[in-house]
Every structure is written in structure tokens, then in C-alpha cells.
Design a protein around this nucleic acid. Structure first.
Length: 433
DNA sequence: TCTGGGGTCCTAGGACCC
DNA sequence: TCTGGGGTCCTAGGACCC
């Protein structure tokens, strides 16, 4: 038996904790570069704001309907997430943190009424952290996910489901006929693992609801679609196929990519951006104790604009795997020079580290030239990471990153950013008597 | 004028081997 | 006229997730 604890409109809820005046108002949080809406309050949703819609298309709602837009503040959301997760863990013996606002809890061995327990955890998170959550419970992760959707929808849209399922929904406690009714009232698109493409194919075959999907023959689903969708069907039928993942797996690739605040045409500016992206990726790869075997760098124009398009990437194999910022930045810059062509208005670039492997199994190599500088370089990286941790992210950077500030054309737009209330002393909220 | 970022898994098809 | 069978590895692309 599994529970899924999931924050409601998580980014918006984080912002509302520190700006209670936003409660009850239509609010969206924008992606990096203030591009698209990536979170929306129920009030914004009611205005017809779709997930992922570009800001410029809904900006008029600010004037006409009081829609408030905020730039994404990931430092805040990450910290609020840690607080919420530590309380959600109280639901059962094991927890898998699945995303910034969701965790699966294993309920094996938990006694008593599960829904009651879910309400207690929900109340505690609301009171101690300030984030409203919903809890879904089911015999498989897919059913717990669906239960969570039902708990949220029943709360937001009275009448869509029985009111008793709002906020906390335990599908395993329903009678078979009640369960069927609930599944029949749920669009197939809401099932975890069914995206737009598969939804269209299913609907063509007359499969419209979660109940329709649950009634398919798994073997047929495998033949016609894939083992992935077959697993989904079996999970809907109550057979657990997807296990809880307790320790986050080591990432197999690590990326840092950004859209630019303004179009970039000069190699010098691109070099600064690529240096920063490679440096950040290098830091991430060190954090997880890995080395990269290849560095991929790409640049591209905006596919949304009517202009000459250019999109290229190149993969640079390293002579030996590395997590050294100097090595990775140099490779990325070599790649950049190889793919750069003047005359294009570039909108985006990125660096990906591939062929990651644990740093503990570094293959030995004959040292033909001189004594290895590796230990000193590793200590240097640790020192840089420590300094940046202590004094701020860009305290020590590679010279090719250029000087931060006014001259940079490429840094992303963040015009509506709220303070880092919980992670920066200078931004701490002040209470007045 | 303005359109995010970071991942995973699976499959099909090509290259290559004996 | 007639042109095998079986296997592995790699990559690109599709689909999904939040």
C-alpha cells in the first residue's frame, strides 16, 4: 500500500506563505526568463490560464483580472520542499522523494485508519510549513497517484467526485462499485504514464476513462503499445509493478541549459554563458561523486521566431573522465568554437555531461609525462566549492565566465523575483509590532 | 517584443560480428 | 533464377514525468 503526498499548486503556495495577501487571488509563477506559467493558483486556473502558456499571451489578465505573476524562486521552493518532505515522511516507514512537491510513502505495517492518518499529516504540514497538500492512497503507486488527483479535484471542484474523497482519498477503502464509478469519472489522460500522444491513440480505440484503460488486456497493450503502458494497466488493476526507490539513483547525465534574456550573436558572449553552464554542471557532477566522459555543448536560435534558424550540438569526448571545472569548461569552449557560426540570433545554449561514472572507479593510466597533478586539482575543486557554498554561488569562477553585471546580454530575465526568505539572512522577513 | 529546464526509459534500425 | 541466421552494441528519436 502506498500514499502520495503532493503539495497543491506548490510554487504558488510557497509564495503565499510569505505574502498572505496573495491568498484568494489569481497567481502564476513563471519559468526561467519569465517565459511561461509553470504553476498557477486555482483562481488563475479558473481564469483559463493553462499550464505552460507563454506569459505574453496572458499578460493582459494582469490588468483586467488582477492576475499576479512572479519569477520562479527555486531557492525558496527547494527549502520549503525539504520542510514539507520531513513531515510527509511521518506517514509511514519509507519515503521516496519523487519530485520537488511529491513523495511516495510505503504504508506497509501501518495500522489504523489510513485516511485518518493522511488527514493528520496534511494538517501538520499546513500548520507547520504553511503548504496545503493532498494525500492519495492506493495499492500501487499508479493508484496512489490517481487517488491524489481525485483528492485534489474533489476539493477544487465540488461535485466532480464524492465530497468524502476531498483532500485525502484512499481508493483501497472503496467498495468495488464505488471504485468503478470513480475510475469511470476520470479522464484517461489523468493516469500517470499516459501523455498526449498515447491519450490520442487510446481515444481512437474508444478508451476514454481510467476505467476503460484498467479493463484492457495487458498482453494486448504490450503488443500494440509498449511494456511501459502494460505496466500502467497492471498497476491500475492493483498489481504493483513499480517499486519504491528509496535512495535517489545516481544521475546518468547532468545538464545546465538556459534561454537567454536577449538574443546573442557574438562568440565572446556565448563563451561566457557556456563557461558558466559548464561550471555549474561540473559542480553538480562533483556533488554526486561522478566523473564525466563526454561534454556536449549546443546552441540554437528560437524556433518561435521568423528568422534564419540554426541549431547544432557537438559531443567532446575527454581523454580521461573528469569532474574538473577547468577540464570541462575547456572542452565545452572547444566544442562551442567548432559549432559557432556568426550571423545568427541565438536564443539558447547548454552544456550536458554524459557518460557519467563513479569517481571511485577511475581507471588507472600510465603516466608517461610527469607526476599526476590530479590530487592537487581535486583539492582545488573542493576549495572552490567550499568558497562558493560559504560566500555565494559566483564567488570564485573561471576567468572565461567574464564579469557578472550590466554588460552581460545573455543572463535570464527575472523581473518579478521574490526574496529568498528562508535561505538568505539578508532576505529574512521582518515582523513589525 | 515576449515561448523553461532537467531528467528517464524504451524501441527501432544500422553497423558489425561470426 | 537463385542471395542465411543469429547475435550484440550503439544511437537517434519518441514518449513520458514534474
Amino acid at each position: 500500500m502506498y500514499a502520495l503526498v503532493d503539495g497543491n499548486n506548490f510554487y504558488v503556495s510557497c509564495e503565499r506563505v510569505f505574502r498572505p495577501s496573495l491568498v484568494g487571488r489569481p497567481v502564476v509563477v513563471l519559468s526561467n526568463n519569465d517565459g511561461c506559467a509553470i504553476a498557477r493558483s486555482n483562481e488563475a486556473r479558473a481564469l483559463g490560464v493553462a499550464m505552460g502558456v507563454p506569459w505574453f499571451e496572458i499578460e493582459h489578465l494582469a490588468e483586467s483580472s488582477g492576475l499576479v505573476a512572479l519569477s520562479a524562486n527555486f531557492a525558496l521552493y527547494g527549502d520549503m520542499s525539504d520542510r514539507m518532505m520531513s513531515l510527509a515522511a511521518g506517514m509511514g516507514p519509507e519515503q521516496e522523494i519523487y519530485s520537488i512537491d511529491e513523495s511516495f510513502i510505503d504504508l506497509d505495517g501501518v495500522r489504523g485508519c489510513l485516511a485518518e492518518r493522511g488527514h493528520k499529516v496534511r494538517d501538520r504540514i499546513l500548520q507547520w510549513v504553511g503548504i496545503p497538500c493532498c494525500v492519495g492512497i492506493g495499492t500501487t503507486k499508479t493508484l496512489a497517484k490517481l487517488a491524489n488527483y481525485i483528492a485534489k479535484t474533489a476539493e477544487r471542484k465540488p461535485g466532480s467526485y464524492p465530497a468524502s474523497l476531498a483532500q485525502v482519498c484512499n481508493l483501497a477503502a472503496l467498495t468495488p462499485s464505488a471504485l468503478q464509478a470513480v475510475l469511470a469519472a476520470t479522464e484517461v489522460r489523468e493516469v500517470w504514464g499516459v501523455g498526449r500522444r498515447i491519450e490520442a491513440q487510446l481515444k481512437e480505440g474508444g478508451i476514454h476513462t481510467a476505467l476503460d484503460l484498467a479493463r484492457l488486456d495487458p498482453a494486448m497493450v504490450r503488443r500494440r503499445w509498449s511494456v511501459v503502458l502494460e505496466r500502467t494497466v497492471r498497476e491500475l488493476q492493483g498489481l504493483a509493478c513499480i517499486a519504491l526507490e528509496l535512495a535517489p539513483a545516481r544521475k546518468r547525465e547532468i545538464a545546465c541549459t538556459r534561454s537567454f534574456g536577449h538574443p546573442v550573436t557574438h562568440l565572446a558572449d556565448l563563451g561566457e554563458a557556456v563557461t558558466e553552464f559548464a561550471s555549474r554542471a561540473a559542480h553538480k557532477v562533483r556533488q554526486q561523486g561522478s566523473l564525466a566522459g563526454q561534454v556536449l555543448v549546443f546552441i540554437r536560435t528560437s524556433p518561435f521566431r521568423q528568422q534564419a534558424q540554426y541549431s547544432r550540438s557537438i559531443s567532446m569526448p575527454l581523454r580521461r573522465p573528469s569532474a574538473d571545472t577547468g577540464v570541462l569548461v575547456a572542452a565545452a569552449l572547444r566544442g562551442l568554437r567548432a559549432i559557432y557560426r556568426p550571423g545568427y540570433e541565438l536564443a539558447r545554449a547548454g552544456v550536458m555531461l554524459l557518460e557519467l561514472q563513479p569517481s571511485t572507479v577511475l581507471q588507472g593510466e600510465l603516466e608517461l609525462q610527469q607526476e599526476s597533478a590530479a590530487p592537487q586539482r581535486a583539492r582545488l575543486m573542493t576549495a572552490i566549492d567550499d568558497l562558493n557554498q560559504r560566500y555565494g554561488r559566483s564567488t570564485v569562477v573561471m576567468a572565461s565566465a567574464g564579469l557578472a553585471g550590466d554588460r552581460r546580454v545573455w543572463t535570464m530575465k527575472q523581473e518579478r523575483r521574490t526574496p529568498a526568505y528562508t535561505t538568505c539572512w539578508a532576505d529574512m522577513p521582518v515582523a513589525r509590532a
